[in-house]
C-alpha cells in the first residue's frame, strides 16, 4: 500500500471559494433545533450561488434565532442588535452601504412581539434585504413562554393553553409592502433552498417565515409548531425551482404547468403547480388563501407573494451609486464658497 496520496481537488464555487468559507462558528443551539437546519441552508445557498461573503451583512435581534448568524458566513460582518430592533440597525447599515447584501435572522418573539413596530415599518419601506423569521411559537432562551405567533388553542409543555389569536407575519408582510413573501418549514430542504436563493437575488424586502420547531419547549402533543404537526398540516402551494442567471434556462416549459418569474438579476423562479391554482402575484389572493388555511388548520408553504416591479427604499432615496459610507471628503464637505454664500444670506 502506498503512503503517498494525491489529495482530491477541492470543490469550489464559481468565485473559487469552498463551502467551508461559508461556514460559521459551531452552533450552541439544541441538537435537533430547526434553526440549525436553516443555518445549513444559508451556507449551501450562498455557497452555491457564489455570493461574495464579505458583501453580506448579517443582522439579528435577541433570542435563540438571533444567535444563529454566528453559526454561518464567518467571512461576513455581523451585527447582533437589541431585542426586536434589528430592522433599524439593518436599515441604517444598508443605507450607508447600498452594495451590502443584508441578511436578517430573527425569531417570532423578536419580530411579532417586541419588534412588531420595527418589522411593520421595515415592510412598509420595502428595504432590499432578506428577513428570515425562525418561527417556533415560543421564547426558547427564557424557557418556553408563548410568543405572539402561537396559534389559538395551542398548548405549552406546562399545559397552559394559548387563548389569543396569532399574528401571521406573512399576511402582515404582504399586505403592507414586502415584495417577496414566503412560508416554509425548516425540515423542507428543497423548498427552503429555492426560497432563499430567490430572496438573495430579489430586489426588495424578502420575508421568509420558516416554521422551525423548538425541540426543547414546543415539540410536544398540542403544539402547532412541532415536527409532527407540520408533517400532518403542511400544505405545499407548489413546487419551486430556482434557476440562477448564469445557467441556461432554455428548457421547454409545458404551458399552464409552470409559472416563470423573472427576477431582478435575470435569474428565474419556476413555480410548478401542484393541486390548486395559486397566483403569487395577487396580494388579495394570498390573503384569501392564508385566511382559508387558518380555518382549515393548514400551514401553507411556498411563495405566497412576489412583486418584482415595486421600487424599494434605496431607490426612493435617490442616492449616488457609490456607498455613502466611503464617499471621499470632496463629495461630502461643501466648499468654502458654499459656506460664504450661506453666511451672506444670514447677514
Amino acid at each position: 500500500m502506498s503512503t503517498i496520496t494525491t489529495p482530491a481537488p477541492k470543490k469550489v464555487n464559481r468565485i473559487g471559494l469552498e463551502v467551508l468559507n461559508y461556514k460559521g462558528a459551531k452552533t450552541t443551539l439544541c441538537a435537533g433545533c430547526g434553526h440549525n437546519s436553516i443555518s445549513e441552508r444559508v451556507i449551501e445557498c450562498f455557497y452555491e450561488l457564489g455570493v461574495e461573503p464579505w458583501r453580506v451583512g448579517k443582522f439579528s435581534g435577541i433570542g435563540c434565532s438571533s444567535k444563529s448568524p454566528a453559526y454561518f458566513l464567518n467571512m461576513s460582518h455581523g451585527f447582533n442588535a437589541v431585542h426586536g430592533r434589528m430592522p433599524a440597525i439593518a436599515t441604517g447599515a444598508i443605507m450607508a452601504n447600498r452594495n451590502m447584501l443584508g441578511l436578517g435572522v430573527t425569531g417570532d418573539g423578536d419580530t411579532a412581539s417586541i419588534g412588531i413596530g420595527q418589522f411593520m415599518h421595515l415592510v412598509r419601506r420595502n428595504l432590499p434585504m432578506i428577513y428570515i423569521i425562525e418561527d417556533n411559537g415560543v421564547y426558547g432562551l427564557t424557557k418556553g413562554q408563548f410568543s405572539a405567533t402561537a396559534d389559538l388553542g395551542s398548548k405549552l409543555k406546562t399545559g397552559v393553553i394559548n387563548d389569543l389569536p396569532p399574528f401571521d407575519c406573512c399576511a402582515l408582510a404582504l399586505r403592507w409592502g414586502a415584495t417577496f413573501v414566503a412560508r416554509s418549514f425548516s425540515g423542507d430542504k428543497k423548498q427552503l433552498q429555492a426560497l432563499l436563493k430567490t430572496a438573495i437575488v430579489h430586489n426588495g424586502l424578502s420575508v421568509i417565515d420558516v416554521v422551525s420547531p423548538c425541540v426543547t419547549f414546543n415539540d410536544h402533543e398540542g403544539s402547532t409548531k412541532s415536527y409532527s404537526y407540520m408533517k400532518e398540516h403542511e400544505t405545499m402551494l407548489h413546487e419551486l425551482d430556482f434557476v440562477p442567471s448564469y445557467e441556461d434556462i432554455s428548457v421547454e416549459i409545458a404551458e399552464g404547468e409552470v409559472r416563470d418569474v423573472e427576477l431582478h438579476d435575470g435569474s428565474h423562479l419556476r413555480i410548478r403547480k401542484l393541486h390548486r391554482d395559486y397566483d403569487p402575484t395577487s396580494r388579495l389572493g394570498a390573503l384569501h388563501a392564508l385566511e382559508n388555511a387558518e380555518k382549515n388548520h393548514e400551514v401553507l408553504t411556498g411563495v405566497l407573494y412576489v412583486n418584482t416591479e415595486k421600487p424599494n427604499f434605496l431607490e426612493m432615496l435617490h442616492m449616488v451609486e457609490e456607498p455613502l459610507a466611503t464617499l471621499p471628503e470632496a463629495k461630502v464637505r461643501p466648499t468654502k464658497e458654499a459656506l460664504d454664500e450661506i453666511m451672506e444670506e444670514l447677514r
Binding site: 451585527f79 430592522p87 441604517g92 443605507m95 413596530g117 420595527q118 415599518h121 455613502l324 466611503t326
Partner: peptide, 20 residues
C-alpha cells in the same frame, strides 16, 4: 423614522457600516 428607538438604531447601523 417611526420613533426614536428606530432613529437611534438606524444611526448606529449606519455608523457601524461607515457612514457619518
Amino acid at each position: 423614522a417611526e420613533d426614536e428607538l428606530a432613529s437611534i438604531g438606524m444611526a448606529l447601523g449606519a455608523g457601524w457600516a461607515g457612514a457619518r
